[in-house]
């Protein structure tokens, strides 16, 4: 389905664009970290070590708010103790208030974010494209009905809708044994399950499918009027044949581009849900930010490190989206040839 010309465009655009390379590099690092987290993480992300709580990142100092009042010469003095910690590499990015390693938590958190991003987007794409192409190809009342429904969906703020749906369905999640731990490749101390937050995935998909439906419908509407679609119909091609053979492949480019942007949006949404405590995930960037929020004044790294991870992932994915958009632009790809 991907023509050699498309590949050529992708390659030439990649060689031209520094930002595209950067995006791919960022995403590759995050993906690699997520997959091999049990091997890469220095600690079990859930292991608590209250003796070493609130350790700042390597080389940073932290002001511990150990204020004590002492009577000195009949006056009350408030003594603020400044503690300089962390010269060891045990916790390179510090620990949180329960002494859990921030680096390890961020590495494992990448799993949740990417799983939700990929699965959520996939479901949204399938749902949205099915609805959108059906509406655009058949038009008329089917189109009216489906698209009015989509408009109603769009009218709800996505976060509110997501929270309502979670409230309705509860926080179901699936625990899959982590093969790296199960087969003894990684240390047995690491968490033995990968948590797939099912409700969250379903919810982010339901919140986001509308965008795909709209784009797919628009594409289907324009492809439907192309003469090759008329030709296929005149040959006796069934609707399913026409849709799968012509309409879908020729509508995919903008959907692909939208999908990359939506992955980023969904990662953000998942983080928001975790931050608000609705996702049920205990190992997630958003959850960690929520945890770190109350220590923001004294232990900024607890929230900042996962926050930077989110920024990195979103920027990386968006850069890839830009690259795809530029490379697959129909002006470059579709026509061309002799003037």
């Amino acid at each position: 389905m991907i023509s050699p010309r498309t590949l050529r465009n992708l390659r030439s655009e990649l060689s031209r664009s520094l930002l595209a390379k950067l995006g791919i590099a960022i995403l590759a690092v995050i993906l690699f970290t997520a997959v091999f987290a049990p091997l890469l993480a220095p600690h079990d992300p859930t292991e608590q070590d209250l003796d070493n709580a609130n350790v700042p990142p390597l080389g940073f100092t932290a002001t511990e708010n150990q204020t004590s009042s002492q009577m000195v010469d009949g006056e009350v003095q408030i003594v603020e103790e400044e503690v300089v910690v962390n010269t060891t590499t045990a916790h390179p990015l510090g620990t949180d208030s329960l002494g859990r390693d921030v680096l390890s938590r961020t590495m494992f958190g990448a799993r949740t974010s990417l799983l939700v991003g990929l699965f959520g987007t996939s479901i949204a794409v399938v749902l949205g494209v099915t609805v959108g192409i059906t509406a655009g190809y058949y038009g008329g009342r089917i189109d009216d009905a489906l698209m009015r429904f989509a408009d109603v969906m769009l009218a709800f703020p996505s976060l509110v809708l997501a929270i309502a749906l979670i409230g309705l369905w509860g926080q179901a999640s699936l625990r899959i044994p982590d093969p790296l731990v199960a087969f003894g490749i990684a240390s047995a101390e690491m968490p033995e399950n990968i948590v797939l937050p099912g409700t969250v995935i379903a919810v982010v998909a339901l919140v986001n499918w509308v965008w795909f439906a709209r784009v797919a419908r628009g594409e289907a509407l324009s492809v439907r009027d192309q003469e090759y679609v008329k030709a296929a119909r005149s040959m006796g091609g069934s609707d399913l044949h026409v849709i799968l053979r012509h309409v879908l492949p020729n509508s995919l480019t903008p959907i692909l581009v939208l999908a990359t942007i939506q992955i980023a949006a969904i990662i953000l949404l998942e983080s928001s849900l975790s931050f608000l405590g609705f996702s049920g995930a205990q190992l997630s960037w958003g959850f960690d930010i929520a945890q770190g929020r109350q220590y923001l004044s004294s232990s900024w790294w607890i929230a900042t490190v996962p926050g930077l991870a989110i920024v990195g992932a979103v920027v990386g994915i968006n850069l890839i989206g830009d690259w795809l958009r530029d490379a697959l632009d129909p002006d470059i790809e579709g026509q061309g040839g002799a003037p």
Binding site: M1, Q226, Y228, K230, N250, E333
Partner: peptide, 24 residues
């Protein structure tokens, strides 16, 4: 059809285009 650009699916080869009615 009239339009030499839009009457052929840009993602199919000449062979696929010509054999489409046979395949259908």
């Amino acid at each position: 059809f009239q339009d030499p650009f839009s009457s052929l699916d840009p993602r199919m080869t000449a062979g696929e285009i010509i054999t489409e009615p046979l395949a259908i």
